[in-house]
């Protein structure tokens, strides 16, 4: 192995690369320039070799593709064993993994096997003046940001989706692709039996979210929010109690025990702004809150607050937007 590297794990789902992998490559390039490292990427799966060039376009200097039928399913023990052997061989300085549910299940097993430190769910990475990697992550249900240093090698970090900038791919970028078959796949004790269900809505990728909370009086009233979301080309999110009531599936839940979201616009209707809810949406672009209680904590986190009854305000907003649209004054995407 020539040179020192920063390694990015390219996550795949059914042979497609998860976009978090490209975001990590962008960040890895930036750190690599500062620390004089190469950018390596490793991808595992079955029939994924032809995907490797994408990773080069997004910034990898070298890609290792472990293409093997035994890696077709997401088997945490199998993936761990291949990645641990790979890291022991190539000895990267830094190893970045996406903080998706899969990444957060896989990374700690690897860290434990390698006896190295792992920082969870980071939202920023910085290089200090003396060349140390500072890993920044929310903790205490999003109430604080901790700066973490790792004292062992490789420095391992999982990074939250959509916090690092998506780089522009450069199809003319050249790099090396090394296709391999793992010597050893230890898959003991885990059997993947199949997908039970797909998530109904993808909040993590949504650009506009209209979210409802306990200010809604009954399940049917979610329709009001659905209509606004439809008009704006967005999707409906909810606070946890609505999921607990069984009004809507967990896919729609925003917060500490649900989805972390980062839309351009988040409209919170009848949501008080508990720490657990804020933990999932505080990094949204523009936050708009509608609440009858002027002292609701959500207003302290909002760009625009409306002290009003959502049952009056939202229907009026909908009619107004429809009217404007009817007159062709504005272009409302998705309408």
């Amino acid at each position: 192995m020539s040179g020192k590297g920063i390694l990015v794990y390219a996550e795949t789902r059914e042979s497609e690369i998860h976009p978090i992998s490209f975001e990590l490559l962008g960040k890895a390039r930036e750190i690599a320039e500062k620390l004089g490292l190469e950018v390596w990427s490793v991808i595992l799966g079955s029939g994924i070799s032809d995907k490797a060039s994408q990773l080069i376009h997004y910034g990898a200097d070298r890609v290792y593709a472990y293409d093997d039928e035994r890696l077709r399913d997401l088997n945490v023990v199998a993936y761990k064993s291949v990645l641990v052997d790979f890291v022991k061989e190539t000895k990267p300085e830094i190893f970045l993994i996406g903080a998706t549910p899969w990444g957060r299940s896989l990374a700690p097993r690897i860290a434990a096997a390698l006896d190295t430190g792992l920082t969870a769910d980071c939202i920023d990475l910085q290089v200090s003046e003396d060349g140390k990697l500072i890993q920044i992550r929310p903790a205490f249900t999003g109430n604080i940001l901790a700066h973490i240093e790792t004292t062992s090698k490789p420095i391992m970090t999982t990074i939250r989706y959509r916090v690092m900038k998506m780089p522009e791919p450069d199809p003319s970028r050249r790099g090396e692709v090394i296709v391999r078959r793992p010597e050893r796949v230890e898959a003991d004790g885990v059997k993947f039996l199949g997908k039970v269900s797909e998530r109904g809505v993808n909040l993590a990728d949504a650009e506009i979210i209209v979210a409802g909370g306990k200010g809604l009086k009954k399940k049917e009233d979610l329709r009001i929010l659905e209509e606004l979301a439809g008009l704006l080309g967005g999707v409906v999110g909810v606070s946890r109690p609505l999921v607990e009531e069984g009004w809507i599936s967990k896919d729609h839940q925003v917060g500490f025990s649900g989805n972390t979201v980062k839309p351009r616009i988040y409209i919170a209707c009848g949501i008080s702004g508990s720490p657990q809810h804020l933990a999932g949406m505080r990094d949204s672009g523009i936050i708009i809150a509608v609440n009858t209680d002027p002292s609701a904590p959500i207003f302290r986190h909002a760009d625009y607050g409306v002290v009003a009854d959502l049952y009056e305000f939202i229907p009026r907003l909908i009619s107004f937007l429809k009217e404007v649209k009817g007159h062709g004054k504005g272009v409302v995407k998705g309408a």
């Binding site: 997401l74 997908k195 039970v196």
Partner: peptide, 8 residues
Amino acid sequence: MGDKYLYE
């Protein structure tokens, strides 16, 4: 895992 998977 976002989507739901069955494991034994």
